[in-house]
């Protein structure tokens, strides 16, 4: 690999450790981001799985939301899984009334769309641009993508056509949690997206 990008992981709450390990396996240098100044010098950002309402509140309370929006508007590559997908959505359904997202991907995402924990599931997912067979998709109280704008590329659907992975420019989002599987191909794809911007 030609270069080692520095990728931040938003560390307000959630499965930060698993994303950190997956990014390291994909050849990135990783640092946690909890404060605005910790965004300086990162080449890309991962927004982990977790509770999106908690992340949203903490991002607002600690003055992180606007700096995050500014960096992403300016082209910072970002990848969000599950709650991270919600945080990257321009519009959300079934969120709290006061729930803020960072936005950036022209899509509408429905929170907890598959149901409660008893409906959480695993299913294999074919992802466009990822070689070597389907990825193991772990869906935990997961969101789905209800609709996308013209500039959004749909990377994966379930058999019933539900959209579960998308990309728009430098932004990537999945409903599921590749970080829980030990299969680092999605993080590899994101690390390559980051490298291309260096």
């Amino acid at each position: 690999m030609p270069s080692t990008p520095t990728v931040g992981v938003l560390a307000l709450q959630g499965d930060v450790r698993e994303h950190t390990a997956a990014l390291q396996a994909a050849g990135a240098q990783v640092r946690p981001v909890r404060r605005p100044e910790e965004l300086d010098g990162v080449d890309g950002l991962v927004i982990p799985g977790g509770e999106s309402t908690t992340m949203s509140k903490l991002a607002v309370a600690f003055g992180l939301l606007e700096p995050l929006r500014a960096r992403i508007r300016a082209g910072l590559p970002a990848y969000g899984s599950c709650a991270g997908m919600i945080m990257l959505a321009d519009k959300i359904l079934d969120g709290r009334d006061d729930q803020e997202t960072i936005g950036g991907i022209d899509m509408t995402v429905r929170r907890n769309a598959f149901g409660r924990q008893n409906e959480s599931f695993e299913a294999a997912v074919e992802i466009a641009g990822i070689e070597g067979g389907p990825c193991e998709g772990v869906f935990i109280r997961a969101p789905w993508v209800e609709s996308v704008g013209a500039g959004v590329e749909v990377l994966a659907r379930l058999q019933d056509e539900t959209i579960v992975a998308v990309r728009q420019g430098n932004l990537l989002a999945t409903s599921f949690h590749p970080e829980l599987t030990g299969d680092h191909r999605v993080h590899g794809l994101f690390a390559d997206m980051v490298r291309r911007t260096l």
Binding site: A11, G14, V16, R17, G50, I140
Partner: peptide
């Protein structure tokens, strides 16, 4: 995995 999402 559900518990992993609650961390922090």
């Amino acid at each position: 995995g559900m518990a992993e999402q609650l961390k922090g």
